[in-house]
């Protein structure tokens, strides 16, 4: 058995645009080369315009997303307000818009919690090399919501098509100040 990060496969990417952010993931769940499910989203919503993408070992994608839902719910009950996107330990890709300042925000983490604040994009998963290439090549500053959607979609689909462990469709969220659009992309089914 290889690295735990390569057992189940999966990819996730977040990008900043003009007054908007986008976050997208693939839908595959596999065991090594065998695909178990083609409907395994890796992006989770924790508050209005706060989204978290998790890649790696599927059991820990489940565990961290559950644990985080619990923690965020406890925060909301205790503080009587929604949580806004700001760094939290133990999560790979975070995207959202700060509800008070209206500022787009993305950040990434490694598995032990080292934070990476980025002005442009964050990638993670088994297709991260490919995503670095496509994002670096396609992304530009101040993209509007529709252009950002096209950019992140093309970047993700092209990247996962060159990774055997990711793909089988994708999910994209475009997050604006007071609107979130979710789109399902079919992509290659192989």
């Amino acid at each position: 058995m290889g690295s735990p990060f390569d057992i189940n496969g999966g990819a996730c990417v977040a990008m900043v645009g003009k007054d908007c952010v986008a976050i997208a993931c693939d839908l595959r769940l596999g065991m090594q080369a065998l695909t178990i499910s083609n409907n395994f989203p890796k992006i989770f919503n924790y508050a209005p315009s706060t989204y978290l993408g998790l890649t790696g070992l599927a059991t820990d994608v489940n565990t961290v997303s559950d644990l985080f839902r619990y923690k965020v719910n406890m925060y909301r009950l205790r503080e009587e307000r929604h949580i806004s996107p700001r760094p939290w330990p133990t999560c790979p890709v975070l995207a959202g818009i700060n509800q008070t300042t209206g500022k787009p925000f993305i950040c990434g983490f490694d598995s032990i919690g080292c934070i990476d604040f980025a002005k442009d994009f964050i990638v993670s998963g088994t297709a991260s090399d490919q995503l670095f290439g496509t994002c670096e090549g396609l992304w530009e500053p101040d993209l509007g919501p529709e252009d950002l959607f096209e950019t992140i979609s093309q970047a993700l689909l092209s990247a996962v098509d060159r990774d055997a462990l990711s793909g089988w469709g994708a999910q994209v969220y475009i997050i604006e100040k007071d609107k979130v659009t979710q789109r399902l992309l079919k992509g290659r089914q192989d």
Partner: peptide, 24 residues
């Protein structure tokens, strides 16, 4: 579908072990 690593996935059909390779 739940495996020994506790990965959970809702699926329309599933199998475990060698049956996966023959039935999926």
């Amino acid at each position: 579908w739940i495996d020994y690593l506790a990965s959970l996935a809702p699926v329309p059909y599933a199998a475990h072990g060698y049956a996966q390779y023959y039935c999926l």
